[in-house]
Design a protein around this nucleic acid. Sequence first.
RNA 1: GCCCCUGUAGUUUAAUGGAUAGAACGUUGGCUUCCGGAGCCAAGGGUUACAGGUUCGAGUCCUGUCAGGGGCGCCA
Length: 524
Amino acid sequence: MKSQIKELMSEAIKKTFPDIEMPDFGVEYADKKFGDFSTNAAMILAKAIGEEPGEITEKIIKRIKRNEIIEKVEFAKPGFINFKIALPYWQKQIPGIINAGKNYGKSDLGKDLKVNIEFISANPTGPLTIGNARGGVIGDTMANIFAKTGWQVTREYYFNDAGGQIDILGHSILKDNEAQYRGDYIDELRQKIKTDDYKEAGRQAAQEIIGGIKETTESVGIKFDVWFAEGKDLREKGKIDEAIKWLRAKDLAYDKEGAVWFRSTKFGDDKDRVLIKSTGEPTYFASDAAYHRNKFEERKFDFAIDVWGADHYGDIARIKGFVKALGHENTFEVILHQFVRIIVEGKEVRMSKRTGQFVAVDDLLKEVGKDVYRFFMLNYDLNSHINFDLKLAKERSEKNPVFYIQYAHARINSILAKLKTQSSNVKTTTKNLELLDSPAEIGLIKQLIKLPELVLEIVDDYQVQKLPAYSIELARAFHNFYEECPILQAEENLKNARLKLVRATQIVLKNTLDLMGVSAPERM
RNA sequence: GCCCCUGUAGUUUAAUGGAUAGAACGUUGGCUUCCGGAGCCAAGGGUUACAGGUUCGAGUCCUGUCAGGGGCGCCA
């Protein structure tokens, strides 16, 4: 609908001012009292033309092609043009939603295209903590969004199964001089691992831990398609050497002071980066470069996304530089999110696996459950530094908005169950739909039809927090409708129409909850 | 010192440069002859950290100040 209005506006502007370059104007949902949609086109034109927005508006409005959908076009104060859409347009949206069912909101933008979404990727030196949690939910939800737009999605977890960190883990198990990690989990591993060799101890411990991480991610509802191991899948296959050879051939790698460097400054980094240390060991960056080369060159992903915590901000320039060198500048994105700050008794707690002081995802899940957990991690702007007070979270988990949304879904199921007909039997014809004309009914329909465009927005701007916000509005619109409009007690034709609306709402609620990875219970 | 992020109601926070800054929790008041009251309706609560600037219009963009988080390794 938005795009249709934009189209109408463009036409009218062209006719009114043939010589003016088309302004980059917006069409938005308007506040209820102004109508359904609004555009700022006249205000933007005003500067280019040198006339008052009011005059411009008047001229343009005359030229807007009218059709049966558009009920009213009006000028408002500073220079907005507001559109009011006729009721039949809204009423007729319902059958389409019911017909589409679980595919409602789906599009085929990414048809035949493969996207790799890599997230969490915490090294197996300890259980997943709340520090890793946010990226996990964001990544998984983005994956859902991409799938909804037709992409073939690979969810991927990248980890070190060998190397310095793992050696230190081994030392920590042995509790020797080089031990660094502490905590109950280290003590537990020590019971299981019987070896005096730190390398072997580290290897075994990492394997145990990665197994635990798999379980944790599954209990959050995340299913990774690929667990990519740095040692096994890159190093042992000579992929790091290959990548460096490739860079050398393009004169993008050089020797200096006994080390091998990548000319990342050529791609916007502020200094060149070491690939191979003077000891002959590859750096973390060398592995990461080889890894991204693998994503694009060997596995042929059309698009790749890394979801990283803010502590990796400094790595963005070099990896983007490398990917640019590969020639994939526009098909790679790093989504950076800020940390969740843990507050205990009013003070921030710094989490560290080295001190053994951290909040494990598993523990939090026991307190609040998967649905609250996911909703919470999803609810905020990626750039906001969430304050997470564990005590408050426990108190509030029972009042979490997620239940408000689930309750709407449960209510719907209860209504449809009373009918003793399958919800899938609700007719999809337009019959009687003209009876849906109260503000509560139309308001609900207007929410229902927002899902498809919302999905398209998020696949573009990665602002996943729009999903929970939308789901709250949707549930509110339903609860409001439920209070205002009797369904089963209504006169037969009206009851029929309202049932269609209820069924459509059930579909949209379910699809939205699915995108967030939150369950849609039939009873609560 | 340099780079990135943030500062909005008592609390947690939302808002492609747009209209009266939106919600949740907490607070206050009202709603049951009817499909689930985990709901609905309403009230109160804001100098959007501070000071300038840009513009028809700024929570949003620019500059500065203050405060907090993250990063500036031949660590990962």
